[in-house]
Design a protein around this nucleic acid. Structure first.
Length: 444
RNA sequence: GGCCCCUUCGUCUAAUGGUUAGGACACCGCCCUUUCACGGCGGCGAUACGGGUUCGAAUCCCGUAGGGGUCACCA
């Protein structure tokens, strides 16, 4: 049986590190097993879903390189849910209920106040036909609940959490359809998983209780349950589920110069026993993917760590893969010289400007003699050899300077910066005439 | 409050009753580089707490504390 996974976001907002991680794991698992990865837009909630978010989700997945093998939208599949509801109805597994949201809220508060779990009391199940008629005569119309079977514990073997066991009596019969006919998440998800042939449901542990309910729905629909993997959630660097996590959407990360590969590597392995390390393609992540490596405790996601990984990945990015994003005319040699010093690809533009643009950095009074000597030496250097090493050797002999006192003033005069890539690599790229002119400019 | 999950270096984790408690990231140091960075090498650093069981406990049991999830006419 070939593996089919799905990523099922609702288009009510941007993707963020939490759900992207689930998307990545679904994709990796499918890739590893030669299976298919599907995108399912869970847009049953018309009021909250926005087309713009659907497009953003597609764009974000594409940026990460997680191309879905197919895409479906729940809003186009209402007939399927209708048919499933009919079947459940015929099987006596759904029933109408008439409580208002306010009434249910009150019931929950009362239960909580008495130290009881706030589970729906099934009052609607006790309604007689006459009761229902009078309720509807009052103008109330029903919403529909799925009737859980309290007969036996719900169990499944979770790929991450191991054997699971739930007492159905501690769960509320879920509302699956509103009085206005709109669908809630629970049933459509099951219907689609069956219809799409999903074999593995990989999602966050915030869904475990939903899974208990859905396991009964699969059975009630006469379908086998897929395998489930519920991964522990991510928390912010402070240890709490912070608001900052919510702000971590892909735009924010892109603005920080994060490479898709870096985010992929980080999210694929955070919370697992595998090392979070730079990769030059998704292949090692695919090859190493294994639910057995997943920890069960929430892992901390720290953007600073992501930035560090990103820098290390940038340091090994080949020219060919970044050329399109580099300043016009930037050569492979330029890239090689600059690359080890970058935190993001975007910073290459700064160094491009330093290499080939205009730099004028006045020398400090105590360094003027050194800079003057350097300017003097320019003409005589062998520019096809090792001009930087020759320059420095000559200046050391003539001025007696060494180390920082020798290097820093030269770096400043030539690049306008205190730090940066290897000068030996940059000087030839700056070129003789430009270098000479910068040194003279520093003396003005 | 009920139910579920979790707690090993700062962080992510390994060690399925016997290990000098291992690795990765971070940090620190050294080397390389005639500065910074990059890179290479090395070092520091942990079993939440309290009771049991056992010849022996990070590992099994009980309790305490702490963290996460869930208990929606959101997904």
């Amino acid at each position: 049986m070939s593996v089919i996974t799905r990523f099922a976001p609702s288009p009510t907002g941007r993707l963020h590190v939490g759900n992207i991680r689930a998307a990545i794991h679904n994709w990796l698992f499918a890739r590893k097993n030669g299976g298919r990865f599907m995108l399912r837009i869970d847009d049953t909630d018309r009021a909250r879903s926005e087309e713009g978010f659907v497009e953003a989700i597609r764009a974000d997945l594409a940026w990460l390189g997680l191309s879905p093998d197919s895409e479906v939208r729940q809003s186009a599949r209402f007939a399927l849910y209708e048919a499933a509801l009919e079947r459940l109805h015929a099987a006596g597994r759904v029933y109408p209920a008439y409580e208002t949201a306010q009434e249910l809220e009150l019931k929950r508060k009362v239960a909580l106040g008495r130290g009881l779990p706030p589970v729906y009391d099934r009052a609607a199940l006790a309604l007689s036909d006459a009761d229902r008629e009078s309720l509807e005569a009052e103008g109330r119309s029903p919403h529909w609940r799925f009737k859980l079977d309290h007969g036996a514990p719900i169990t499944w073997d979770d790929l991450v959490r191991g054997p699971q066991r739930f007492d159905p009596a501690l769960l509320s019969d879920p509302v699956i359809r509103r009085e206005d006919g709109s669908w809630l998440y629970m049933l459509p998800s099951v219907v689609d998983d069956v219809d799409m042939g999903v074999t593995h449901v990989v999602r966050g542990e915030d869904h475990v209780a939903n899974t208990a309910v859905q396991v009964q729905m699969f059975a009630a629909l006469g379908a086998a349950s897929p395998a489930f993997a519920h991964e522990a959630l991510l928390v912010g660097a402070e240890g709490k589920l912070s608001k900052r996590m919510g702000s971590l959407d892909l735009d924010a990360l892109r603005a920080e110069g994060i490479e898709p590969l870096a985010l992929l590597a980080k999210l694929a392995r955070i919370g697992t026993s595998l090392a979070v390390e730079p990769v030059d393609s998704p292949e090692p992540l695919v090859a190493g993917f294994d639910f057995a490596t997943f920890g069960r405790a929430p892992a901390r996601f720290d953007v600073e760590e992501l930035k560090g990984l990103n820098a290390r990945i940038v340091h090994q990015l080949p020219y060919g893969s970044v050329a399109a994003r580099l300043p016009e005319g930037m050569s492979d040699a330029d890239w090689q010289a600059i690359r080890p010093n970058l935190k993001s690809v975007a910073e290459a533009a700064d160094w491009w400007a330093i290499l080939h643009g205009h730099v004028e950095a006045p020398a400090a009074p105590e360094d003027r003699d050194l800079i003057a000597a350097a300017a003097e030496a320019m003409e005589g250097l062998d520019w096809s050899g090792t001009p930087w090493a020759d320059l420095v050797a000559g200046l050391k002999a003539s001025t007696g300077r060494a180390g920082k006192a020798l290097f820093l003033p030269l770096r400043r005069a030539l690049t306008g910066r205190d730090s940066g890539p290897e000068m030996a690599a940059m000087l030839p790229l700056i070129g003789r005439d430009e270098a000479a002119s910068r040194l003279r400019a520093a003396l003005r």
